[in-house]
């Protein structure tokens, strides 16, 4: 069973739950940036929750189906079209053999997840099918899709009936401005008190280069670091530290100018001070923010972060209950 890529979209990659446990060796987790939407598409279709899907950033692909297969979408709103005829999002749809599945332009959100019955079949690397393009690892030949690629599909043990749809209450809601919750630290003492305060006061705009490695933010006032004699091993820039591990979600501000939030394809360490970490519960949301949309960073305590993590787990549990 195969699907042929006619047009790949802008940056379409095979992703799943990711490969955890190798970050200390420099291999990032990768996997769908918006894990909730990826899982929702799979659960809707009756797939294993973390079966490999296509993550389609900002523009959908054009795919020719050589076999009749059921699919479901999650995440960003891009209307799916079968041979040009619009179909609903968040619903199991059957694509007949010989048909072309394409997508209208993105109306809200940034990443659409396309699940296919059984899941996309690429070799597992370190326990995951996810694409880590920077390291040419996983996915289809370690890279985003290209025209002419053939995607294979795992034969499905079961599949939901066409027409099954995600309950309205479990669908994502997108905006043009968001709040991202941040646990401050562990190097924010390197900022001047005024800069620390201003970082959370100002509205930041997502840079157009934002991708799976990191989201860069612009438009705020540059942040001043406290002057100091660089410690042995640290670079000369005031934003430098002695090399340290970078958590996913950590915020670095090279030279104080533009904050970068690391995401699932990030490098695992380096010499920039991290002034805070976006909480795990808000990492899915980052994957749905378009370039040029606005964000305010909101400081929260570790207890609040853990409470939010609990809420996210309950939301996933509600998806499993509704669709299991």
């Amino acid at each position: 069973m195969s699907i042929e890529v006619i047009k790949p979209g802008l940056a379409t990659t095979v992703q799943d739950g990711g490969r955890s446990g190798h970050y200390h060796l420099g291999i990032p987790p990768s996997g769908a940036m918006d894990q909730v939407s990826m899982r929702s598409a799979n659960l809707l279709l009756g797939n294993p929750e973390t079966a490999a899907v296509l993550e389609c950033a900002l523009m959908g692909p054009e795919l020719r189906f050589h076999d009749t297969l059921r699919v479901a979408t999650g995440g960003a709103e891009m209307v799916p079209k079968i041979d040009g005829v619009a179909c609903p999002n968040h619903e199991v749809i059957e694509v007949p053999a010989g048909s072309v599945l394409s997508f209208d332009f993105v109306r809200a959100g940034a990443r659409l997840y396309l699940a296919v019955e059984g899941g996309f079949d690429v070799p597992e690397r370190l326990g995951s099918r996810s694409t880590y393009a920077l390291g040419s690892l996983g996915g289809l030949d370690g890279r985003p899709l290209q025209p002419g690629d053939r995607l294979k599909v795992v034969s499905a043990e079961r599949c939901a009936d066409a027409g099954r749809s995600l309950p309205e209450s479990l669908r994502p809601v997108y905006h043009k401005q968001y709040e991202l919750r941040v646990v401050p630290g562990i190097y924010d003492h390197r900022l001047t008190p005024a800069a620390r305060e201003r970082f959370y006061d100002e509205l930041w705009s997502v840079g157009s280069e934002a991708d799976r490695i990191g989201y860069r933010f612009k438009g705020g006032t540059p942040l001043e670091f406290i002057e100091r004699e660089p410690p042995f091993g640290a670079g000369d820039d005031p934003s430098n530290i002695v090399d340290a591990c970078y958590p996913i979600g950590s915020i670095q501000v090279p030279s104080g100018s533009e904050p970068i939030v690391l995401h699932r394809d990030a490098v695992s360490g380096g010499g920039y001070a991290m002034i805070g970490t976006v909480i795990s519960a808000d990492m899915d949301l980052i994957g749905q923010i378009q370039p040029h949309q606005k964000v305010r960073f909101v400081p929260v305590s570790l207890d609040q972060a853990l409470e939010a993590r609990g809420q996210r787990s309950r939301r996933l549990e509600a998806l499993r209950q509704a669709l299991g």
């Binding site: 802008l10 900002l58 523009m59 157009s208 370039p291 040029h292």
Partner: peptide, 9 residues
């Protein structure tokens, strides 16, 4: 003709 995706033109 409309922009197929968001970006700087």
């Amino acid at each position: 003709q409309q922009a197929p995706f968001p970006g700087v033109f």
